[in-house]
């Protein structure tokens, strides 16, 4: 086993508003090896972005709160650091790319200066060096150095996302968190950007957490995948294994409900119902109301994490509490 870079233990994050508590992330645990990559997959409201914000220390000040759990990064618990210490880590050791390339760049500063800015903030270079390095970074993401003095509006969506990636990687971070980095892009541009992310990751030996609702995108880039549902990681494992033989009914449901190019489907099999209300803590399994295999026990007993070889899954079928009927239905 390679050395661990990031280890999240029992992280619980909530948003507390006037008369409501939103249980956004409910006790997730996750390990990321140095140089490794994890895809966080789930539908909107699954807690993917909240997990990322918890790691970055970017939860909204007034409402967002880490209730319990720890986030160990290079052995340091990020949840215990002061705002100032976090600021030093953000952008230099951990970087994040956001979904919308149109609003992530300051429209009145040239792209070159925006890349140089990160370098200066983290004191890694003086002004001249920073400018030179900014040019290098642009070339690395496939944009000619000559465009350094142009403004964001002169770039297309795909180009902007490249600039954003250049900014994120400028300080050579240990960990890159990419939140839906290609969702706003066209499919041919998405292919370009994904290829680039993968190459840069290998070249710079950066670890990656890729957040996406698109199973295909995650499949292109990541080794491991964590399937999130209602703030829980319901299944975790090597991506090939999880996608070819899902253990959790939700994972199976996701795979069944998407139309696929390579598989002929007369009819899609949707997951019935919809996401649960995040302000309510259910007794039993959170997926029970939508689960085709659920038994009575599921509404009483909450599943815990079961280990099956090097995979993990949260389902009573794998605790032996109820019979595992999933495989049978598959055959």
């Amino acid at each position: 086993m390679e050395s661990l870079l990031l280890s999240i233990n029992n992280l619980t994050t909530q948003y507390i508003t006037d008369n409501n508590i939103i249980h956004a992330v409910n006790g997730i645990s996750l390990e990321l090896a140095r140089g490794g990559s994890i895809g966080l997959v789930g539908e909107s409201g699954a807690g993917k972005t909240t997990t990322a914000y918890s790691i970055m220390g970017l939860l909204p000040k007034l409402t967002g709160k880490i209730i319990k759990g720890s986030i160990l990064f290079e052995g340091k618990d990020l949840t215990l650091l002061s705002e100032e210490e976090m600021r030093d880590i953000r952008g230099s050791k951990i970087s994040m790319i956001f979904q919308d390339p149109m609003t992530s760049l300051n429209p009145i500063i040239t792209v070159g200066d925006q890349i140089a800015e990160v370098l200066e903030i983290h004191g890694t270079s003086n002004k001249n060096e920073a400018q030179k390095k900014a040019g290098d970074m642009l070339e690395m993401v496939g944009i000619p150095r000559g465009r350094m003095n142009e403004y964001p509006h002169q770039f297309s969506g795909g180009m902007k996302q490249r600039v954003i990636i250049a900014i994120a990687l400028a300080c050579n971070p240990e960990l890159l968190i990419a939140d839906e980095p290609t969702t706003a892009l066209d499919v041919t541009i998405q292919a370009q950007v994904l290829k680039m992310i993968k190459e840069l990751k290998n070249e710079l030996d950066t670890s990656l957490i890729l957040i996406s609702h698109n199973l295909g995108v995650v499949a292109q880039v990541c080794e491991n995948v964590a399937i999130m549902y209602a703030g829980r990681i319901v299944e975790f494992g090597a991506l090939r294994d999880v996608f070819s033989k899902p253990l959790h009914p939700y994972t199976e449901g996701l795979l069944n409900s998407i139309p696929r190019i390579e598989v002929e489907k007369e009819r899609l099999i949707p997951i019935r119902g919809m996401m649960p209300d995040p302000s309510i803590v259910p007794s039993g399994c959170i997926f029970k109301p939508r689960c085709p295999y659920a038994k009575e026990e599921c509404s009483v007993q909450a599943p815990i994490v079961s280990k099956i070889s090097d995979r993990r899954v949260m389902c009573l079928m794998h605790e032996g509490v109820i019979p595992n009927t999933m495989g049978a239905a598959n055959e």
């Binding site: 119902g273 919809m274 209300d277 309510i280």
Partner: peptide
């Protein structure tokens, strides 16, 4: 399509 969550969501408000 039954949905208890939605009912509870309305009930909760």
């Amino acid at each position: 399509m039954d949905n208890n969550n939605f009912i509870s969501q309305i009930a909760s408000t």
